[in-house]
Design a protein around this nucleic acid. Sequence first.
DNA 1: ACTTGTTTTAAACACTTGTTTGAATTACGT
DNA 2: ACGTAATTCAAACAAGTGTTTAAAACAAGT
Lengths: 223, 223
Amino acid sequence: MSEVCARSKILEAAGEVFAEKGFKAATIREICTNAGVNLASVNYYYGDKEQLYLEAVKLSHPGRLGEGETALPEDIPVAEKLRVFVRGLLDRLAKDNDSSWQVRLFRREIIQPTPFCRETLEEFFRSRFSVLEKLVEEILPPGSPAWQRRQICFSIIGQCVYFRAAKNVVSMVIGDDEYDSHYNTENLTEHILRFSLCSLGLQKPFSLEDRPLEDRFDAEIGA
Amino acid sequence: MSEVCARSKILEAAGEVFAEKGFKAATIREICTNAGVNLASVNYYYGDKEQLYLEAVKLSHPGRLGEGETALPEDIPVAEKLRVFVRGLLDRLAKDNDSSWQVRLFRREIIQPTPFCRETLEEFFRSRFSVLEKLVEEILPPGSPAWQRRQICFSIIGQCVYFRAAKNVVSMVIGDDEYDSHYNTENLTEHILRFSLCSLGLQKPFSLEDRPLEDRFDAEIGA
DNA sequence: ACTTGTTTTAAACACTTGTTTGAATTACGT
DNA sequence: ACGTAATTCAAACAAGTGTTTAAAACAAGT
């Protein structure tokens, strides 16, 4: 198609294949075929497969992209900020994502980090996590311990990741119909947000009245 | 050590190696070496690698083991039942588990199912899920839609799976010290249980008083 | 002791993988 | 046009994989 040099053609094809199959299952032969270059070109331009993968992941880093999603709107209620965060994360993790390989490859690294680019990912995780942590800190009472705050953050993140990563398991249990109708990004955002806001006391719990009180609030847990 | 036939020696060694490295990365050569049998024995006794894996997974199925953890105690409050469920799941998913390869191999299949034994797993998932679903049904108001109930179930399961499966990410963000002190099975059980019970209205939310009310309950979400 | 069927063995096969090689081709400055 | 460097290419290499083979060793029945 485009008249670009072989080096970038390789990287483009490699990103696509790596995003599709992962590091191990992707083969240099397929990458070179798709790129329309000779088999030896990968080693000529990038040294070996591992360095090629690292270059691809570096290019997939959202910091390098102009997505600028790390900044949350300022002048909205904290619950709304949380919704933006949850939807953003779900979007990024969306399985049926026909977006660029950068997004898909980076999602791969989020869900199953390879040992090659640990530091590249670590920086991303920390920065994203701190956004959520500040958000939860706004909600929790001032005296709350930091470890508890972080556990809550991971509970929120965990739901997002699980719903996306375990699509197979979910649809295996509930069937494809219900999955299609209740597990798109919109549905999941609302559910996870509500589930989490209830815990945080910003929304009424799923079950409030119309239940007998004898077995309510009587689990001797925590405080 | 023990004087058993080659067939079972292979299965034993295979279970160990499969649990450690997964299907793809495990090699027949390593299995046979560990079992102390000839390389060709796997194909002689089991046909091929795939069938051997399937036999190992079948043997790892908790239904086949005498663990009998599917039955929850009857005469305890529903919140306690949920705790038993959560702890049981966390136990089964525990990363640093020096237990038998059966448990570790089955955990592997739970987190990353291989296409080989889909039906074997499907039965397990459904049965376990229905236990949790009945439990949640007890808590929710009678009119609640089924899809919502199931979403809640997956939110609970998702937390358990994520905290266990994403240990690398978690400790990468918060450091090993905090992980060791606040993310063992006991801590996680209490946290996930509380986070979930809050949502379900069986426990007071993390934040109730001592916060300004202006940004509380004002997210126009759900009902 | 001989036969028959089962198990074990070493070797090879067929295939895929990442990587290297050395010659052929191209690009480009002089 | 020439010469040098960069690039491309087909081919092979080396290591690893699951699998097959055919002969050897063994066990058991008669």
